[in-house]
Amino acid sequence: MELLLYILQFALHLMFAGGLWLLVKPLIEQHLWQWGKKIDLRMNLRMTLFGKKVSRVKKKMWLYRHLDNLLYFVHRKYEPGISVMRFAIRSVMLFTAVFLSGLLTLRELPGRMSFNNPFLEGIVLNDGAPVDGAWRLPLFLAVLSASIPYLRMRYTYAQRKVRGSYDLLDVIKIATKFTHLSADSILSKTSDLLAADNVLKSPLKLLSAAFANYSNEHELNEEAGRFAGAIGTTFAVEFVSDLLYCEKEGTRYLKNSLMMLNRSMEQQRETILTVKASSRDAISLGLYGNLIVLVSSVGTFMYMLKPDVYFKLQFETSVGLTFMMVIITGMFISFLISTILARPKLDYH
């Protein structure tokens, strides 16, 4: 009961920190927007001025470019520079809130714990001085919490890459109807006609702006390469190459090229669907089989040992915790592999 009160206290500290953030956020929003714009302008200026030395600039700003490329494909309302600053500020605020909340809570915990027979009493909290080195656990929780937005973004990015490889087929079908227009107009019209749930709608709009407003060829190639790299398929590279050729030489051969690309993607999609149908049972077993086995095994042990004894052995012994982490890690890896196999990218291979 006492432990639940400490958990509740920690949650209240987090709610207080969240309320403060909501009060401060409107005050810094305008400054954040201006700061993000300045950073993006400086990055583009360096890319333009350094030319062949652009790799040196990328190495210095690798973290910014990494986050920017992820948000470019994940954030539906992506804004160059601004989205990165917002993500960084939110991660820092989350880290600070969890760390301070955990530190304030642990300062009030008793300083000594006695470990008795796990089948009878378990852990007993004794009165005493504050815990020594109380910053270690809050720091660990803060780092873990601050990494969750990034891990969530990476997972979403991986999912959207796969989905984007299929959504590109819709883009090519629509773009074929506007090959009499310039490249930026083709992209703009296509983006407007795409469904709202198409993951390429926003990146296509940004690519259209790049074709309409680029100052040199290197800048256009960078933006086109980012679009193709976000999808990560050979079909995307072909589509971007056709657009770049169209920008230089005109739209004379664009319609035929897009129609051939559309035909190749349709054939590859049929092949993927056929292979997927033949291996559906094995994929489903990898997704849900381990979970079913785990639930049935845990249920059997709980029935045999009684729930209170099972929980003490599982969570209050080093062997139980070690095996639990190994099992969870194995299930996570199996789930990732099965998820990848369940819907592979729409690519040549």
Results as ranks from 00 to 15, higher is better:
93 M>G: 00
83 S>N: 09
86 R>V: 10
89 I>N: 00
106 L>M: 06
81 G>M: 09
87 F>K: 03
95 F>P: 08
91 S>A: 14
102 G>I: 13
92 V>D: 05
85 M>P: 00
108 E>V: 02
84 V>M: 08
90 R>D: 08
91 S>F: 01
84 V>H: 06
91 S>Q: 10
101 S>L: 08
82 I>M: 11
88 A>K: 01
77 K>V: 13
88 A>D: 07
93 M>W: 07
102 G>C: 12
88 A>H: 00
100 L>P: 12
97 A>R: 03
92 V>H: 02
104 L>P: 01
88 A>N: 07
87 F>I: 01
78 Y>R: 10
84 V>P: 06
95 F>Y: 15
104 L>S: 13
93 M>S: 04
105 T>F: 04
103 L>D: 01
93 M>Q: 01
87 F>G: 02
99 F>C: 02
107 R>W: 12
79 E>N: 08
105 T>M: 09
86 R>T: 06
78 Y>E: 02
89 I>A: 14
94 L>Y: 02
86 R>I: 09
107 R>D: 09
101 S>T: 07
95 F>W: 13
86 R>Y: 12
96 T>R: 00
94 L>S: 05
99 F>E: 03
100 L>C: 14
87 F>H: 10
103 L>A: 15
106 L>N: 03
107 R>E: 11
107 R>I: 06
108 E>M: 08
78 Y>G: 05
103 L>W: 15
90 R>H: 08
104 L>Q: 13
79 E>K: 15
100 L>G: 04
84 V>Q: 11
91 S>W: 01
98 V>S: 03
85 M>S: 08
81 G>R: 07
91 S>I: 04
